[in-house]
Simulated scan of single mutants.
Amino acid sequence: MQSENRMFDDLVKLVNGAAGTLAGVGREAEQGARSRAREWIGGLDFVSRDEFEAVKAMAAAARDEVEALTARLAALEAAKPAEKAKP
C-alpha cells in the first residue's frame, strides 16, 4: 500500500509540474505574441483617439468658416451689380 501511495504521489507531482510548465510556456507565448503585435502596430501609421478628435474638431471649424465665407462672398457679389447700376 505504501508503495502505491508513493507512486501515486510521484505521478501527481509530475502532472502538477507539467501543468505549471505548460502554463508558464503559455504565458510566455502570449507575451511574445503581444510584443510582436505591438511592434507591428507601432510600425503602422495609426493615430491616437485624442489626435483624431482634435483633427476632427479642426475640420469642423474649417468647414463652418468656409460656409460663413461663402455666404459673405455671395452677399458681396449680389451687392456688386447694384453698385454698377448707380452711376
Rank of each mutant, 00 (worst) to 15 (best):
L11G: 07
R36F: 04
E77L: 14
V15N: 03
Q2C: 06
A74S: 09
F46G: 01
F52V: 02
P81S: 01
M7H: 11
L76K: 15
D64A: 15
A75D: 02
A74C: 07
T70I: 03
R27L: 13
A23R: 12
T70P: 01
P87M: 05
E28Y: 06
F8M: 11
A37R: 11
Q2N: 15
E39W: 08
V55R: 14
R34N: 09
A85W: 00
S3M: 10
E28T: 11
A71W: 01
R34V: 04
A23T: 04
E39T: 10
V12T: 03
R72Y: 01
L76W: 03
E4M: 14
E65D: 08
A19C: 11
W40V: 12
M58D: 13
A75V: 04
G42A: 00
E65R: 15
K84W: 08
L73Q: 02
A59N: 06
V25N: 09
K80F: 09
K13H: 08
R27Q: 12
A61S: 08
M7L: 15
G32M: 02
K13Y: 09
L44M: 15
A19F: 02
N16K: 15
G32I: 02
E51N: 03
E53H: 14
S3H: 07
S35P: 01
R34A: 08
S48G: 07
A29C: 04
D50H: 09
K86Y: 07
T70D: 00
L11R: 10
Q31G: 06
V15R: 07
D9S: 13
L22W: 09
E83N: 08
N16Q: 11
E67A: 11
G24W: 01
E65L: 10
V12S: 00
L76N: 10
A33N: 12
A60F: 06
A33P: 02
A82Q: 06
G20S: 13
G17V: 00
K86D: 04
D10K: 13
T70S: 01
L11W: 11
R49T: 09
A62Q: 08
A82Y: 05
L11Q: 10
E53Q: 12
R63E: 07
A68R: 13
N5P: 04
W40I: 11
A61T: 06
A78F: 01
A59S: 09
D10R: 14
K84Q: 07
R63I: 03
G20L: 08
V47F: 11
R36S: 12
T21K: 12
M7K: 13
D50Q: 13
A57T: 00
D9Y: 08
G42P: 00
E51T: 04
S3V: 03
T70E: 00
L22Q: 14
E39R: 05
P81N: 02
V66G: 01
L22N: 13
E67D: 04
A54E: 03
D64R: 14
R6E: 07
V47Y: 14
K56Y: 05
R38L: 07
M58W: 07
T21I: 08
V25K: 06
A74Y: 02
